[in-house]
Design a protein around this nucleic acid. Structure first.
Length: 557
DNA sequence: CCTCCTTTGAAGGGA
DNA sequence: TCCCTTCAAAGGAGG
């Protein structure tokens, strides 16, 4: 596991990653030293990149192509039929922009959004993935596009992508070339920029969508390359290139933004009614925005309940995606296409295993992306805290302490909570359990999560996909494990893992169509846990990992 | 309609 | 410092 515990303290990976990789054999570990150094280098370069901005335009990562949402499952490269329309679209936008600037009407949008060009391209600017999840050809095409750079004070606000810029004071919103079909910085609000909503509101006059939305990974090379760089947001005048039509939703949202993060929001970054495009990371919680809802009563004038409701309607800044989430975004469609599985829980299990089967280099790419995303997110929302989103979900899960308070004796008898019978290991997973690390190491021992008292009984344990220990850390011994045949052939990640030998058990093969429903309580072969499978906490994997030492020792006995 | 499931990682608070 | 909790995405399934 790419443990990036550099001296700078800015880790790309979580500390927990130490666990999985620590379990490997010493040889493996030695072999990984260089990789860790590489990751440290990556980290250092990232730090330098963000602090000194030493990148160059020519080196700037390129944006992936954008995509046709409606493209068929055909992955064969083919001319993008939308390029023309996109070009036309951007031409319109440029014109409009010029008009606005010439006429003095162009106002930098104070919208504090991610610096992306979210031009709803009437249906094809959204996700680089096809509707079936496959990556479209255009989504995989690297077109000349300069990633937007985050200006810092002293830099011009508007840039042309063709104009080499700055760099000394900019924070490049870099996307790894390898990952250009990912848009790690824009995962935030899939709803905010959908073409369906955007198209009707599109105005040639403004070149803008009135109601942008987002499944759109908003950067379309075809349309974006010609756009002037909009960003001057760090100068206190955040600009958004596609400002134009007023979005009632955005207005409503903006009107409520000031109280969004408990006053911790930087005033400089608080969107004003002038901004028209909601930040992809700023999404309403639960309730759709009302058209025309440009204002909301002041908080003081609202009674408590009403204020709560109002708060629920307010958008919130979502957390930046971590490396695994970015990986999931990319790989999920592939898994869906390969395995014909739609259940996210199952897919996530597969992805979890695949994630661990990735080489360090592969993972490092995602850690790098995640780090950049966090960096950008922190710059965009200086006062934002992940804590601000607590309770933003529909219904906050009860904490463990809360659960225990209500039923303190509920977890005393572990056997009562072993919902699934132990299943004999299937043929695909015969890796022996790795020896626990020496006690003197500071790294945590491998997770011992079985038996583990589930914190919350599942509603339908017989139909749920049984959890599996995706960390199943048996890299050194896995070389002796027979690789389960993959009928669908290796995925790109698998292929890369082949080039760089997998450090863990091979990724699981595709599950049966409905693995969770084959037999209640019986794991499908691809999900058969290792003999030492531990039941992950239903609510929190990390808690299981960080099981109290006493309990772990008791379990080991 | 709402919540759960399931994954890993990041972040924050409490002890 | 460690432990615990929550959230981020996704979409089917169940209540």
């Amino acid at each position: 596991m790419p443990q990036l515990n550099g001296a700078d303290g800015d880790d790309l990976g979580a500390n927990d990653e130490l666990i999985a990789f620590k379990d490997e054999g010493e040889q493996e570990e030695k072999r990984n030293v260089s990789s860790e150094r590489d990751l440290d280098d990556v980290k250092s370069s990232l730090v330098n990149e963000s602090e000194t901005n030493s990148g160059s335009d020519s080196e700037a990562p390129r944006c992936s192509g954008f995509v046709d949402v409606c493209v068929q499952a055909d992955r064969r490269p083919k001319p993008d039929p939308d390029v023309e329309s996109r070009a036309k679209h951007s031409q319109l936008f440029e014109e409009a922009l010029r008009r606005r600037q010439d006429g003095g009407l162009f106002q930098p949008s104070p919208y504090v959004g991610y610096p992306f060009f979210m031009i709803p391209d009437l249906g094809n600017l959204c996700s680089p993935y096809l509707s079936n999840g496959a990556l479209t050809p255009s989504g995989r095409t690297y077109l000349p596009f300069q990633w937007p750079l985050l200006d810092v004070p002293g830099r011009s606000a508007v840039r042309d992508s063709a104009t080499p810029t700055h760099l000394s004071n900019s924070v490049p919103v870099v996307q790894h070339p390898h990952m250009t079909h990912l848009h790690p910085l824009l995962p935030y609000s899939p709803e905010a920029f959908s073409p369906q909503r955007a198209s009707p509101g599109f105005s040639a006059d403004t070149g803008m969508s009135r109601a942008p939305r987002a499944a759109c990974y908003p950067i379309s090379p075809g349309g974006v390359t010609q756009l002037p760089h909009p960003l001057g947001w760090l100068q206190g005048q955040p600009m958004y290139p596609i400002t134009g039509g007023f979005s009632p939703a955005a207005l409503a949202m903006n009107a409520s933004m000031s109280g969004l993060v408990s006053g911790s929001f930087s005033p400089r970054l608080v969107p004003t009614p002038q901004s028209s495009i909601p930040h992809p990371a700023i999404v309403p919680t639960g309730v759709k925005q009302e058209p025309g809802g440009s204002g909301s009563p002041t908080r003081k004038s609202m009674p408590g309940i009403q204020q709560e409701k109002e708060d629920e309607k307010k958008p919130h800044i979502k957390k930046p995606l971590n490396a695994f989430m970015l990986y999931m975004r990319e790989e999920r469609p592939k898994v869906v296409a390969q395995c014909k599985v739609k259940e996210s829980a199952t897919i996530n299990q597969i992805l979890g295993q695949r994630w661990h089967s990735l080489s360090k280099e592969e993972q490092a790419k995602y850690y790098e992306l995640a780090r950049k995303e966090r960096l950008l997110h922190s710059k965009l929302y200086p006062g934002w805290s992940a804590r601000d989103n607590y309770g933003k979900k529909k219904k906050r899960k009860r904490t463990k302490s809360e659960t225990q308070r209500e039923a303190p004796a509920a977890v005393e008898d572990f056997s009562l909570h072993l919902k699934r019978p132990r299943v004999p290991p299937g043929p695909t997973h015969t890796c022996p359990r790795p020896a626990p690390p020496p006690p003197w190491t500071r790294r945590r021992p491998p997770p011992q999560r079985w038996p583990h008292p589930p914190l919350r009984p599942r509603r339908t344990p017989s139909t749920r996909t049984p959890p599996m220990d995706t960390r199943h850390p048996t890299p050194s011994s896995c070389s002796r494990c027979p690789s389960p045949p993959n009928p669908t052939g290796p995925t790109p990640s698998e292929a890369s893992s082949l080039q760089d030998p997998p450090r863990h058990c091979p990724p699981p093969t595709c599950p049966p169509p409905h693995p969770a429903r084959l037999l209640p309580g019986v794991l499908p072969p691809f999900l058969v846990p290792p003999p030492t499978l531990t039941l992950r906490s239903a609510a929190n994997s990390h808690s299981a990992l960080t099981q109290p030492l006493s309990l772990r020792r008791a379990n080991q006995l």
